[in-house]
Write a protein that binds this DNA or RNA. Structure first.
Length: 272
DNA sequence: CTTTAGGCCTGACGGC
DNA sequence: TGCCGTCAGGCCTAAA
């Protein structure tokens, strides 16, 4: 569900709800597993810890504490929401983090593709984090970076961009949109994309991510920020979810092909 | 090393 | 109304 702009919005919202310096007082486990079994003992070890900040890395949310990091991935349908003290729980409310000052946040996730884990001080790099690629909004992400990453890659440019080991944080929506806006067919072999198109691709990726963050992300179905609000960037999608409709640039019919199991929307005229 | 298929889950939707 | 198949913003794992 949530890609980089959505996760960024969740982190910003959580930072407002949870000011630095709060103490994590307890964790309520309403079930023992999400996508993976929860490391309950280790997580309980964070009770009493002071929160330093909440930030995003790729599509992960990092709760940084004085004694280590608790991190969360939202999968397809995960949400972190502020939870009022006496409020009832909903069926898919799985975890509650209870902080000092009666501030609580709840993790809700119908499909349970999300998960929560932690990395304690001095521990080996976590296997789910150690292969993460660079941030697309960083300085080092550029056409030259893509040229290096795409070199010798026989996979489609679409799959290559979804590979979190290269650029970390993109998902299906923003890859479809960025490829359209830079005029590249999703099914084109990564290594065969003309090098002069790669700086355009990198800059369209940055542009679209920033614009989406500003719009509060894309809410296709489930996504809500930590205050329960939907984003509005779906109104600016040019191809995603528009199969069979007219291209807004050239009026061709937008197509949808499956690439490595994912729907890929594109315009046969605008994308070469 | 690479790429692909299957699997994890629930819920919404369309066709019959 | 209800049942069934399909699909969904992610990504790990095993297999080829």
């Amino acid at each position: 569900m949530p890609e980089l702009p959505e996760v960024e919005n969740v982190c910003r919202g959580l930072s407002e709800i949870l000011p630095a310096g709060l103490t994590l007082e307890s964790i309520e486990f309403r079930r023992k597993d999400l996508r993976f079994k929860l490391p309950i003992k280790q997580l309980i070890g964070y009770c009493g810890a002071r929160l330093i900040l909440v930030r995003r890395r790729a599509k992960f949310i990092f709760f940084e504490f004085d004694r280590g990091i608790v991190f969360s991935h939202l999968g397809m349908t995960g949400q972190w929401r502020k939870h009022e003290l006496a409020a009832p729980f909903l069926v898919h409310d799985h975890l509650v983090l209870k902080f000092s000052g009666d501030l609580q946040i709840v993790y809700r996730d119908p499909r349970r593709f999300g998960f929560l884990d932690c990395i304690s001080r001095g521990a080996a790099p976590h296997k789910l984090l150690k292969n993460l690629g660079i941030e697309p909004l960083s300085e080092e992400f550029s056409g030259e970076f893509l040229a290096k990453f795409f070199k010798n890659k026989k996979a489609s440019v679409k799959s290559a961009l979804l590979d979190q080991r290269g650029v970390a944080g993109l998902g299906n929506i923003y890859v479809c949109e960025a490829l359209f806006r830079s005029g590249i067919r999703p099914q084109k072999m990564a290594k065969k994309v003309r090098p002069d198109k790669l700086s355009g691709l990198a800059s369209e990726i940055k542009k679209i991510l920033k614009a989406s963050i500003e719009s509060g992300g894309s809410s296709i179905r489930d996504y809500r920020n930590s205050r329960g609000q939907a984003g509005s960037f779906q109104d600016q999608h040019l191809v995603y979810g528009r199969e069979g409709q007219l291209c807004l640039i050239c009026h061709s019919l937008i197509k949808n092909i499956r690439l490595s199991g994912r729907s890929s929307f594109w315009c046969p005229t605008c994308q070469l």
